[in-house]
Design a protein around this nucleic acid. Sequence first.
RNA 1: GCAGGGGUGACGGAGCGGCCAAACGUGCUAGCUUGAGGGGCUAGUGGUUUAGUACCUACGCGAGUUCGAAUCUCGUCCCCUGCACCA
Length: 916
Amino acid sequence: MDASQIAAIESKWRKKWADEGIYEPDPDAKKEKRFVTAAFPYPNSPQHIGHGRTYTTADVYARYLRLRGYSVLFPMGFHVTGTPILAMAKRIAAKDPDVLKVFRDIYGIPDELSATLTEPKALVSHFSSEIEEGMKEMGYSIDWRRKFYSFDPKFNCFIQWQFRKLKELGYLIKGEYPIAWCPLDKNAVSAHDTRGDVDPELEDVTVIKFATQGNAHLVVTTYRPETLYGVTNIWVNPKAEYVKAQYRNETIIIAKKAAEILNLQMGLKIIGPVAAEEIMKMKAKNPLTGEEVPVFPASFVSEEIGTGIVMSVPAHAPYDYLALRDLGKADMKMPQVVELKGYGPAPAKDEVEKLKVKSQDDPLAEQATENIYTKEAHEGVMAVGKYKGEKAIAAKEKIAQDLAREGSAFTIVTIANGPVYCRCGGHVVVNILKDQWFIDYGIPAWKAKAKQCLDGMRTVPDKARDEYLYTIDWLKTRPCTRAAGLGTRFPFDESKMIEALSDSTLYMAFYTIAHMLKEHDEKDMDEAFFDAVILGTGPKAQDPKLKKLRESFLYWYPCDSRHSAGDLIRNHLTLYIFNHVAILDTPLWPRQIVTNGFVLMDGMKMSKSMGNILPLRKAVKEYGADVIRFSVVSGADLASDTDFSRTVAEGTRSRLAFIGSLVEAAAKQKTARLHGRADKWLLSRLNRKINAAKALYESCQMRQLGLEIFYDVVSDLKWYEKRTESPNLHAFFMKWAMLISPFMPYHAEEYWHMLGGKGMAASGKFPEYDEKEVDAQVEMGEELVRAVHGDVEKIGQLLGKKPQKVGIYVASDWKHGLYHLVREHKLLPKVMQEAAKDALLRPHMKDVPKAAAQLVKNAHSLPDVLHEKEELAALRDALGFYKKEFGCEVAIEPEEKGAHPRAKNAMPGKPAIVMS
RNA sequence: GCAGGGGUGACGGAGCGGCCAAACGUGCUAGCUUGAGGGGCUAGUGGUUUAGUACCUACGCGAGUUCGAAUCUCGUCCCCUGCACCA
């Protein structure tokens, strides 16, 4: 089948499924329900095959449950909350060449189309329908009636209600919060607002105050307060501008640029300039030791980092030592603070000399600093002071706290990976938001409830459980509003927007009613409205207009299976648990969360910069939905990343073509024929797989399923095709089509109808495991046929010629008896002793020792074997096959009938072969 | 540093106490097939050896438990991911 044929088949069944409405379930009292959801997509670009993994996993699972007779709801919506969509629209409007290039080259979006996407709404509309189309093409069994966007007014009402509930519970609090901020835009910035998509990382840094003779303090920035014991001097950059400024009720001296950067968070009042030369005349008093130290010049000091003033600890900071050496003061006394094994009293000096660093401007200085800092942090022990003998890393915290308590130090927040620039060109700084709203996930009682929910919930894979547990403990206060972005206004401060991770924690409930809200005006959707629908309480609880909504909610809730990529355990999925336990009663808490890994492209992470992104719709066009579904989901264990490669997709396609040709033949088979041994073998294997598949589907073991019900089946069929003259596969495929249908719904449907199946495969029944069709004897027999076939071929190869005649001689039953004696008794003397007592073996005592000796070697690992008669029956069944394969006469006899002495070598499970 | 995961063939990865020189897939090699724009089929793919076999060397490194270990125990080295407000 070529791509257009596949596309035709797919659209045929897609239409049929839609017409029959099998994915649009409504509450049905007669049926048990299953509610499956997957994290809704964020439509700021088209989706690629990586996005397909979670949705396909969820869809396979949903389709499986449907076949098991459940009423299954799998809905979908779109998440548009936050700033990325705004940022994207802005970049398109500004004709950002990077964005346009990605759209053009990767997603095939012409510039003319991009040019229409400059408004957020237009962008959302275009990409969401693009994604929706893709999902339909993939065959996802989604109920699209329930689609909504997270900026829909009715959804906003729901989210505002959720936040009112959180507030009532006392889970919302207000406080200060440091954020990355652009002073030009006067706005918070995150990765997508910055040049080069850098995520600004905030970091606490200690500032220590050194008193001077005047009333001003020199404020020095340090990552290592514990080294304060070893300060020999203070550094300023002679080329930098410094100022006096008022900070709270003190006067400090700080670099001018630093003051500008820190002004927002510190609230400084500039008094006037101070020349660096002036500062260098000062003496600065170490708040810890009381010692007065001089101020020296150094070029390595940056006026933009921290306060633009640093302290000098030459024994432990390579830059400080280098700067002193550059000044010709290397002979200065350098007090040791930290003891480091393998180094002298001045590790910084040792390291500088070891690396042969030339000066403070030598790039090697950075290397030396990193080496010393890492080593001292991990292995260093305090050599002096109050915390002598303790690990340096622990002392650091304690000393910083001590100093802060005394008022000799404070903390500032800096951008660790700075400087970072906003797309508008502004230098990103840290701002402290005064009335930031938080959700307080740190409340112990709430955490306890979340854990209780986890206890009663299934996590797939099971080992993800620990990560949830960890995250539940780790979560603390979390900001829940932002100044800008799409979404829902914060009900207690309408100037703020609810942040993107906070409005997607309870929204699954909205799916249960989303399609029924047309007759309700959002003005009526107040607190009482949702109290009635979701909680069944409040003044509107008895409102007949809301009864249907309430019923729908109660029918579908709780969510039976939530699907997402594993990286969301750390935030979204755990917040999902928290919010559910906060607002809903125990029976409505989540039942199961399934997390999966990513999709790699030919072993590499997909990324825009590498250009190796395969858009989902393009992939479907090329390979057909079923091949993509299968490739994306069955290539690796659920939790690990899977690799998509074209060769694998090709392989899947060609295997499907092979199966297709057999199905076609089976479809022509008018009447059911009786099954021969090979048919029975195949059916026996299939039934085992059906049995195993149930458990595998239940636990979303897609990889294992792929192996069992596809790859294994293909190789079974290959053998079968060779083995039988006239395939008899109708019954086999009727079952198999249903078995594979959750994975490959289109092919399954097509096959099902080709074979004359009744109704739709997509809404049919999961195949029954028929124990009567499982026959271990037949399976072992077929294994034997296969093994003998392989052996004959191998011998033929070694002989280097085609055989004239092949004799296959089956071991006598007395050997079988011996076989079991060896299995039981293991040791040769014991076996011989028992053999002598055995009526079956006694007549063959002259042959027993040799055979026994051979068997005893593997006494601990002898597999089950068939009796002589069964071996004969199995092999004789394959006589025609053998003749055809070997192209000569074939005799299959008990070993006594063999004239050749080699016939006597026969062993149970290992017939003797004589070729001439 | 803390937390989690992992080290197996050319590669992705199975196996988690014995039918294991290692599933399944990919790659590679050979043969066949007029198939020719990421073909199809068959066989092979650690070494030696043999009429289908057997043995040796292999599952990061070292030691131990066991009749038997990739699989269990202990030690050791190395690698990856996350550490927060970002959807």
